[in-house]
């Protein structure tokens, strides 16, 4: 029992980083991790026989994060995205043509790539990042994200578009063209 507790505890820094990335709020992230670890302790028996503790804990944490996201959301107006506008000319065509990426699939094998991706995610505006992570990481449908963030579907698609455009630009600058 004591061993299980300490091996769970050893994952706390990792889980905290994971939660912070999605919640953008240190205190909320600590709450989510605390709840996840307590739930994990209570569910020790259901872990027995599984191979990867971190994956199991991350799964529990995801549910806690979704719960928290559901509780804390408010509607705000769509602001303009100047970085996005700057990519296009007055006819909405590319100012600079987006270059091809060098070996994207190979990047998925590299730890440093994921560090660059995390850094780029941290650079997104809070609500944009939350919508994007709910969609692409947690796999929620748009209507569910709209409800959680109290925004319209159109607003949601705009946020997801902005997130993708900002991330591809950020990865291009900090990874693929580096």
């Amino acid at each position: 029992m004591k061993d299980f507790r300490s091996s769970i505890e050893a994952e706390r820094p990792y889980l905290l980083r994971y939660a912070s990335l999605q919640l953008r709020d240190r205190a909320a992230a600590e709450d989510a991790v605390q709840e996840a670890l307590l739930a994990a302790l209570a569910a020790e028996r259901s872990f027995a026989g599984r191979s990867n503790l971190r994956t199991w804990l991350t799964g529990i944490l995801k549910h806690k994060i979704v719960d928290l996201l559901r509780k804390g959301s408010r509607e705000t107006a769509i602001e303009s995205d100047e970085a996005l506008e700057a990519l296009f000319d007055e006819n909405d065509h590319w100012r600079a043509f987006p270059p091809a990426w060098r070996d994207p699939d190979g990047s998925l094998e590299q730890k440093q790539f994921f560090a660059a991706l995390e850094m780029c995610l941290e650079g997104l505006p809070e609500k944009t990042a939350r919508a994007f992570m709910m969609r692409e990481h947690l796999g929620l449908e748009t209507d569910e994200i709209c409800k959680e963030l109290a925004i319209t579907s159109t607003h949601c698609w705009v946020l997801l578009y902005r997130a993708r455009m900002a991330l591809r630009k950020c990865l291009e600058l900090n990874w693929f063209m580096k």
Partner: peptide
């Protein structure tokens, strides 16, 4: 240009799904 970007969007989905499944 746009077809590259469309592929990159799909790649982002794959990459972000894998976030947290690997060692930090």
């Amino acid at each position: 240009g746009c077809s590259r970007v469309a592929k990159q969007f799909a790649f982002l989905r794959t990459a972000v799904k894998q976030l947290g499944e690997r060692d930090a």
